[in-house]
Design a protein around this nucleic acid. Structure first.
Lengths: 107, 107
DNA sequence: ATTTTATATTGCAATATTACGATAAAGCAA
DNA sequence: TTGCTTTATCGTAATATTGCAATATAAAAT
């Protein structure tokens, strides 16, 4: 046992959970915030800014990439990670939709 | 190693991560959605609705309770869980604030 | 008082995540 | 080429999460 039973849940619920999972680590929240406020980003900056080892940062970046939140291009010699703005807004909308449904006539 | 280094992150980042963690499982997303759309909720309903064993549902409910999203009162013979609306709106605001900061002049 | 019903807790096995040292790969500079 | 810098991957240990059977608790019904 131990594996999440994703198959019994709806795609919508699974997707929101997957998005939330990426945000469920303070390092990734910090990374996202940092990148979203920069014009560009070089991974090595993050090692200093966040305070985790370079392989760890690389792994966290990969998790963020998996849900499509980053687009990367080369800028001179360094890889440049940026927020994928379209996707960012999709996620914002997903959370907004989720939080907007609440019944006010409760105990 | 393996433990998250929460101490190196800001309270804001840790809190958002903690909230996201609760939403990072489809069962909890489904539970929250279900409760938020009901006037009341009896845990045993959830066992049928969600499709996980009763102890598992109980544990998930506990995670949700930990971040203050539920208030429970007794209604007749059954415990009634409801969404804590104030807290719900706080979380909505937290996500909204997070997603609202993005630099548009990127690569 | 006993049974039934609803929820919580315990204990444990399976799986997932986190972190980092070591190492590899890829580009640039000399 | 050789060396330097930056990022990715591998391997592994520590920790956390998930799920459920078994059991406990607590309130209501009989």
């Amino acid at each position: 046992m131990g594996a999440s039973k994703t198959h019994i849940f709806s795609p919508t619920h699974n997707e929101l959970a997957q998005i939330a999972k990426v945000m469920a680590h303070p390092a990734r929240v910090a990374i996202l915030e940092y990148i979203s406020k920069q014009d560009a980003c070089i991974c090595n900056d993050l090692v200093d800014v966040i305070g985790l080892a370079q392989p760890t940062i690389s792994q966290h970046l990969n998790e963020i990439k998996k849900i499509g939140l980053l687009k990367g291009t080369f800028e001179g010699k360094n890889l440049c990670y940026c927020i994928n703005q379209e996707r960012w807004e999709e996620l914002q909308q997903a959370f907004h939709t989720f939080f907007s449904n609440i019944n006010r006539n409760c105990c």
